[in-house]
Amino acid sequence: MHLEPFELHQPATLDEALQVAASHPGDFDYLAGGTDLLPNYKMRLNPRGHVIALGGIPELHAFAPEAGTFGSLVTLRQIERDPVIARDYPGLSEAARQVATPLVRASGSLGGNLLVETRCFFFNQSASWREALGYCLKAEGDRCHVVPQKERCYATFSGDLAPSLLVLGAEVDLVSFQGPRTLALDDLYDPRGDGIRRTRLLPGELVVRVRVPPEGRKSRSTYRKLRVRPAFDFPELGVAALLSLEGQRVRSLRLAVGGLETYPRSFPTLTGPLEGTTLTDESIAELARRVQGMVRPVHNTFLAPDYRKRMTEVFVRRALADLRGAS
């Protein structure tokens, strides 16, 4: 399966990359590992005329686990194999290990996983499949086949790393033509978008690195992934949890889920009140139920949405029970 022709740019600096992007507004993609972009290009999903390969920009490869700093082109393989990450941020390590397959992880990058294209049964199909049904909102069309209307796309956020970085309180350093800035990872995703625009990235803005604050190291974290097979599959649900205790009391508790809606989300309003309390089976169960009550999966992946919703409760409960047990 060949790719349609595009112009390939291989900038050596961030500035150069931003300049190329600025000169082709709306007609470029950044290319990191390629394991998300290239299958989509092969299926003729929104291919662009310009591909800006980022691999030649040294600072994007920065890898300093001790400092909690990870360039956006760090591969998932690097993350899953790193002993410091496994020790300090086990949830991140677990999440990386559960992405797709070892072969995808060899190329797939941290930045690519954070910004992975949302997925839907009606979107991730060949051009002729989509032509047969009528193109959808997310590619060439003007309507949604999942929730019939013309305003919003319901494709599912399918990255595994975002939830585990959300609970670690990660920040992302960005750079655009307007200059550098830093966002909390939580603020990178924009729940008020139309589902197609899902982030607060400016046109041409790049994720340079992800920084994990050192407090994360004092906490225990975990990631649990719902998928039909223990390899290959995107998450039908991903639950990341972080817990640190002071004696019996919760110092910090964070939860985030992915694989359910158009963006990964955390639940500070639910977890915040539990800080300072002692976790019990009952309070964990109650929290899990409330998280379940807040999520709204739709029918656009392999497993039924009601089941994914129900599993949210199970997975949250199990994740917290694990963390409490290990503390």
């Binding site: 291989q10 390629g34 290239l38 299958p39 070892p102 072969l103 995808v104 060899a106 190329s107």
Partner: peptide
């Protein structure tokens, strides 16, 4: 389509040759 790219098992179907 797995090959070793600098020793790392890699999907050659998702790799741009130029890279």
């Amino acid at each position: 389509c797995t090959v070793l790219l600098d020793g790392v098992p890699t999907l050659s179907c998702l790799t741009l040759a130029r890279l």
